[in-house]
Computed example of a mutant assay.
Amino acid sequence: MFEAATPLSALLWAMNPGLIAAPSPDCGAIAAAADAVGYARGWTEAEAALQPLRDRLGQAAQALDAASVIDPASLTPLFVTLVRRIAEVVVDGELRQSPEVLERLVASAFAAVDTEGATLRLSPRDAALLGMGTIDLELSDGEIRVDTARHVVAASLATRLAEAVAGLV
């Protein structure tokens, strides 16, 4: 009977012993080449996928840089408002401690008119502070009105403060 099948290469060698068999392929080199091709393809795909994210990150960095630049013109109104509020608080505090500022306002109003027959109108708090004048509920603290037969002089610390602050702009 037949014996186990002999590989074809063995038969070929037996028929032609001078024939040298082809060298077996270098599997390590083939694997290394395949790895290199796969790595290059993966790197290219990853770069392509990351580029839109890099672009967005660059845009965000530019926006951050732009946001950190301070435009002095945009700060001026904020500083003016801050100065006005600080001055209002200081003047209000001064009025609560001493009638001196209000007395100067009254004196300058009376200096502008003939004081004979003049009526000084004040807010309730200012009238109590000065101990004189007619209470006028329509007037705010720091606001006065002097009525005479021929003139009405209206003056207020708020108006003077607004004039001073207007010079800041």
Rank of each mutant, 00 (worst) to 15 (best):
L19V: 12
D147W: 04
G93F: 09
E88C: 01
L161G: 00
D147P: 00
R145T: 04
G142A: 07
G38A: 14
E116H: 09
V90S: 05
V83A: 04
I86A: 03
L57P: 05
A149P: 01
A4W: 07
F110I: 00
M1G: 15
E94K: 01
L122S: 04
M132E: 06
A29M: 10
G131Q: 02
R96E: 06
A154E: 09
R121Y: 04
L102K: 01
L53W: 14
T115W: 12
T148Y: 06
M132I: 02
M15L: 15
V169K: 08
A21L: 13
A128W: 07
A60H: 05
M1I: 04
T134M: 10
L19S: 14
W13C: 06
A29P: 04
A73F: 07
Q51H: 15
S9N: 04
A49T: 11
L102R: 02
V80A: 05
L95P: 00
A87F: 01
W43A: 14
E143V: 01
R56C: 06
P23D: 10
D126A: 08
P7R: 08
V83Q: 00
V69Y: 11
D35S: 09
A128M: 15
A111V: 07
A73K: 13
A40S: 15
V69I: 11
S108F: 09
L157C: 03
P52S: 15
N16V: 06
T119Y: 09
S123W: 02
I135K: 11
V106W: 05
A155D: 03
G28K: 13
I70K: 06
L64A: 15
T134L: 11
S98F: 08
T159C: 14
T159R: 15
F110D: 01
L130F: 06
L102Y: 04
V146W: 02
A31Y: 10
V152W: 01
D136A: 08
A22G: 05
L50K: 10
C27N: 06
R150N: 05
V152C: 05
A162H: 10
Y39W: 06
V113Q: 10
L120E: 01
S24L: 08
A111Y: 07
A67P: 00
R125P: 02
A107I: 02
I86G: 00
R145V: 07
V152K: 02
M15G: 09
W13K: 11
L102S: 03
D126Q: 06
R150G: 03
I70S: 05
A149V: 08
D92W: 03
A60Y: 06
R125L: 08
G93R: 11
T44W: 14
A10G: 02
I20H: 09
R160H: 12
F79W: 09
S140Q: 12
A154S: 12
A166I: 03
A66R: 08
L50Y: 13
A33T: 14
G18F: 14
E163Y: 10
V90K: 08
E103C: 08
E45Q: 15
F2K: 03
L161Q: 00
L139M: 03
T119L: 09
P52L: 13
V80R: 04
G18S: 15
T159L: 15
D126I: 02
A127P: 01
A109T: 01
